[in-house]
Design a binder for these strands. Structure first.
Lengths: 338, 338
DNA sequence: AATTTTTTCCCAAACGTTTTCGCTAGTAGA
DNA sequence: TCTACTAGCGAAAACGTTTGGGAAAAAATT
């Protein structure tokens, strides 16, 4: 019993035409009840299922959606995928994942690969390299082909399409405001380099919060990190300044800062309050628990999938940008309000 | 410029037959140089790419591999995916991900969905429910259909197929031995319920290590947890016993135990040494860093993909089980050897 | 009995490829 | 002038499905 059975094989066995079999399986009244029952019984016996590929070719719909992300070993992206998969599955779609591993070339190659008929639409978060190069021809190309595209998290304004983001600036603003309100006077920032959109926006939020509270900016207390691998060396100098609060744009930066602080004999939160971004496992299980700006990856994924599937099935032409709310999760790494 | 161009359209534009276009694009000498150049230029201009679906139908090869895992928001599974994707991409395959979310039914549905022509082979890690129910008909079915299948991590012996696992028992044995050798006398175990294969095996390793070192087993210091969500309540009673060492079968159990210990005024590692399993982000960034048995998810994924693709392309008939080595990563949650 | 209607089924096209085979001219050899 | 060969191209089948348009046979109507 090797390989799946096809309509043709059934038709040969039962000595009817292929179309008769097809219609019989759809229970079409065009076919006599007798024939229908015979065919259906036979199909059931041999566990017939229509071939998806043939259906895709015929219908020009694959019921697949392509997702391209820089990295998957990353709580945020994993949770987005989870949200996408959940929503897609409910609507009868499968999810094809490609990792760009932060490489522009891989992003382009993967897109071209998938664009040749394998999927009905894209969900993508750009690589840092793409954001740096500002080369979006591959995105424009699939859009021109009439393939729906939804961007999330790392987006670019130059491309017209549906987008799902969080309000990075406001999330940062709220976090820094919290630090100010619990009494921090010298707040350090640990961010990424500016061409990464989320890093830039969070930095803006940081600066705006300081400005609105009339706190002067200390440029020496602003650190912009390119490579997460050796962030430790970049962060350490921050503690040469007298800081009592830190806002970091991700969990790793925040936890690394906390560890360095502890090594230097500083207590958290008594001496230094720390707030991170992205409410992942690390924040939850850190000790003390990390106060953090939560970005709901699951919801972002669901929303992106929902928007994409709507575009796929309705072909409407208006592009929306959905902003998913952030929320400050207060744990023990910040002093409590008095 | 909507939609992709097809051979048919090119042939119509240039007033040659479809077959001529196809051959010209393949640079076949059967076609005159002049025609070839004309066709190739036209194809390039319109950015022609063969339709993957049509190719799949023709070649009866999709160049897709299906991956079914219980969960993706989980460092281990995410890193396995990463390994699979890497290897697959290199060999020209795409990866379709389905999440079973620990539900037997979803596992079955997803498998049937993908088995109908969408993919060339499966990589799967079973849900706990499947392991509990011991219902493997869906696995056997795809194998009978002649579709290659590779299982990893949560496997079952009853099914004949390629497998990739770590030596859970030995990993646990080594960890517990380490605890014993650094002087622990009362070692607690935090495991999962027994029907989860990895939990059972790690429990076995724990017991064997104790036995080999002539340490009596204290049943009260063995905790088996069903639901990770409220593991805190289950773990707390462990500290009513005088324990000086803990072996936990995953990171979350270990970190939760560490947090509870600290709340009870116990110092780590002076009073209690803790070892976890799965070297993820949590272990690395915990404080103190968690000593842990590392299972290299990336390698497991790569190995699984490699085995699967070999089966897909070579159709050999012998089933292998690949054991990926674990390694004890010593950090600060265990006393140092004196 | 002749005509119409209904039932029941089959044919063929289409989706986009690849590939085998066959056809038509033209050229070379005899 | 005939045969043989080659260059260059096209037709058609195949992958597995759906579906509109018929066609033949059966049943109903006149």
């Amino acid at each position: 019993m090797k390989g799946k059975i096809t309509l043709k094989q059934i038709s040969k066995e039962l000595d009817v035409s292929i179309s008769t079999v097809s219609k019989a399986l759809k229970n079409s009244t065009e076919i006599s009840l007798e024939t229908r029952e015979k065919v259906q019984a036979f199909a059931k016996l041999y566990n017939y299922r229509p071939n998806n590929i043939a259906l895709s070719l015929k219908n020009r719909k694959t019921k697949n959606i392509g997702v391209i992300i820089p990295e998957i070993v990353h709580h945020f992206f994993a949770s987005v995928i989870s949200g996408i998969e959940h929503e897609a599955n409910e609507k009868g779609y499968n999810v094809i994942i490609c990792l760009s591993t932060e490489s522009f070339d891989k992003e382009v190659i993967n897109m071209e690969m998938l664009a040749n008929g394998s999927i009905d639409g894209f969900i993508i978060s750009l690589t840092k390299e793409t954001q740096m190069l500002k080369d979006y021809h591959h995105l424009q190309e699939v859009i021109n082909q009439g393939m729906p595209l939804v961007m999330f998290d790392r987006i670019v304004d130059e491309i017209q399409c549906d987008k799902v983001v969080i309000d990075d600036k406001k999330g940062a603003y709220d976090a820094v405001t919290e630090l100010i309100e619990i009494g921090c006077k010298n707040i350090g920032l640990i961010s990424t380099v500016d061409y990464v959109s989320v890093g830039r926006l969070r930095t803006e939020g940081f600066l705006e919060a300081l400005k609105d509270h009339n706190i002067p900016v200390n440029q020496d207390a602003i650190i912009k990190i390119e490579d997460i691998e050796n962030c430790r060396e970049n962060i350490a100098p921050l503690f040469d300044h007298k800081i009592d609060g830190i806002f970091a744009v991700n969990e790793i930066f925040a936890l690394t800062a906390m560890n360095i602080a502890r090594e230097r004999g500083l207590r958290i939160p008594e001496d230094v309050s720390v707030i991170g971004f992205t409410d992942g496992e690390l924040s939850k299980y850190a000790s003390p628990g990390l106060t953090t700006v939560s970005q709901n990856g699951l919801l972002i994924g669901q929303e992106a999938a929902r928007m994409l599937i709507e575009k796929i099935e309705d072909e409407s032409e208006d592009y929306k940008t959905k902003i998913v709310k952030t929320k400050l999760i207060v744990r023990k790494s910040t002093k409590s309000r008095s």
